[in-house]
């Protein structure tokens, strides 16, 4: 029982009620699982393991959702098991994708002397740097690991400058300066102030102006060396409005996608665990 509950009789009662409900749900879950999956009467070991796997997956799915109500012992088990499995998977993944093919095999399984020489030529430095990284485990010699960070961060920072100039600056600038021209040149020939004129001509032109105002005001909002007073305050307020509208739009845009994730999990429970075909 959590320590903070000990002095509060109401909380104690609630705690025990919750634990009771949890135990009951667990029993119901196991009973339903045994009924629908029937792991004990499968044709072979593979089918049995699949049935057990599906029960486990369904159990973990429901347990993860139980966290939405409150933290509970089952969630703690699931959380820690998940963390452990993911860690083991990551370790094996790194071994299989990086260390084994790039370090272990070229050096310890070099088929020829010349292959070993080539491998040593290319791998010695990164292996030494890799071991330097491990000195982080020592309080006294931990500073040696800085050489590894220096190499990684130096490489990343140097590479970032042209890459960011390309994608964050040039691409955005180029895309920002041409649309008004396009909106004007590609406008359909429609009578002024008609519905089509508003949609085809005025809309895009106003839209591109809105983009210009929005971009400039957002850029201005982030000016650090100017105090936002008078005109500055007005411009940065417009910037904030733009930011909020945009955040709201992105927010609204993702809602449906997130709902479909939930639907996916419910479908898993219905189709695979309970074996109730959804259509």
């Amino acid at each position: 029982m959590p320590d903070d509950l000990q002095d509060n009789p109401k909380s104690i009662i609630r705690h025990y009620v919750e634990m009771g409900v949890l135990a009951l749900l667990l029993v119901v879950f196991l009973a339903v699982s045994l009924w629908r999956q029937d792991p004990l009467h499968q044709k072979d070991a593979a089918a049995t393991m699949k049935a057990i796997g599906l029960i486990l997956a369904a159990g973990l799915t429901l347990t993860m959702y139980s966290f939405l109500y409150r933290d509970n012992p089952l969630f703690k088990i699931a959380e820690n098991l998940y963390v452990g499995v993911a860690l083991g998977y990551m370790a094996m993944f790194v071994w299989r994708q990086a260390l084994r093919p790039m370090v272990y095999e070229p050096i310890f399984h070099a088929p020829t002397w010349s292959a070993l020489q080539t491998a040593l030529l290319h791998k010695t430095v990164p292996i030494i740097v890799g071991f330097m990284l491990l000195t982080r485990l020592s309080r006294k010699h931990g500073w040696i690991s800085r050489y590894a960070y220096a190499l990684m961060i130096g490489w990343a920072a140097g590479l970032a400058i042209p890459n960011i100039t390309n994608t964050y600056i040039l691409k955005q600038l180029y895309a920002a300066v041409t649309p008004l021209q396009q909106a004007i040149t590609s406008a359909p020939n429609t009578p002024a102030f008609s519905y089509d004129w508003f949609v085809g001509t005025a809309g895009p032109v106003v839209g591109t102006l809105v983009i210009l105002i929005g971009t400039v005001s957002v850029l201005f909002y982030f000016f650090f060396s100017v105090e936002h007073k008078k005109v500055g305050r007005a411009v940065s307020t417009v910037g904030i409005w733009f930011l909020m509208v945009s955040f709201g739009a992105s927010f609204g845009y993702t809602v449906m996608g997130r709902l479909s994730l939930l639907i996916g999990r419910v479908q898993f429970l219905l189709d695979e665990w309970l074996k109730i075909p959804s259509t």
Binding site: L173, L212, G214, T215, F242
Partner: peptide, 22 residues
Amino acid sequence: YPNLAVKRGLLLGIGLAAIAQS
């Protein structure tokens, strides 16, 4: 329109800040 404007403004600012940091 507004969403794209903000994305551009943010990206341009982030780009400059990230280069300055590099």
